[in-house]
Simulated scan of single mutants.
Amino acid sequence: MKPFTFDQIPTMMKKLHDRLDHLERLIIKISFKEENKNELLNIDEASKLLNLSVPTIYSKVSKREIPVNKQGKRLYFYRHELMKWIKAGRVKTHLEIRNDIEKKVIKP
């Protein structure tokens, strides 16, 4: 980094402040994601998140189709586990399937 003159101090302070502001926003964003990752939902909250009725969720729980935590008679769901469960049901496109096949065939 080059030395700067006295006249450049305000500009340098502004840049420094902007960078610190950016870092602070990133830290808050990351910590918010971590908090949400461990967020515990009850069945009504899980129902709203998944846009499924409560009886449908009870059915999926009894068939062991959905990740759940049970304490006594109460059911609890971790938000990140439900999101992972939703993503696991993603159907690949024809292009993705073709690319997967090409990777396997080309792989030495």
Rank of each mutant, 00 (worst) to 15 (best):
P3E: 08
F4Q: 05
F4M: 09
F4I: 15
F4W: 11
F6K: 14
F6L: 13
F6W: 10
F6G: 02
D7Y: 06
Q8R: 08
Q8P: 00
I9V: 15
I9C: 01
I9F: 01
P10D: 07
P10T: 12
T11D: 12
T11N: 05
M12P: 01
M12R: 12
M13R: 09
K14H: 05
K14D: 04
K15G: 13
K15A: 15
K15V: 12
L16K: 04
L16M: 10
L16I: 11
H17I: 07
H17Q: 11
D18Y: 01
D18R: 06
R19L: 14
R19D: 15
L20Y: 01
L20M: 07
D21R: 10
D21Y: 00
D21A: 03
D21N: 12
D21F: 01
H22E: 10
H22V: 06
H22F: 05
H22A: 10
L23T: 10
L23H: 04
E24R: 05
R25F: 10
R25I: 10
R25N: 13
R25W: 05
R25A: 11
R25T: 14
L26A: 05
L26R: 10
L26Q: 11
L26H: 04
L26W: 04
L26P: 01
I27F: 00
I27R: 03
I27G: 04
I27M: 05
I27E: 10
I28N: 06
I28L: 04
I28K: 03
K29P: 00
K29A: 06
I30T: 07
I30V: 08
I30R: 07
S31Q: 13
F32L: 02
F32K: 07
K33Y: 03
E35Y: 02
E35H: 07
K37V: 13
K37M: 09
K37T: 11
K37I: 12
N38K: 15
N38G: 07
N38S: 14
E39Q: 14
L40R: 12
L40M: 11
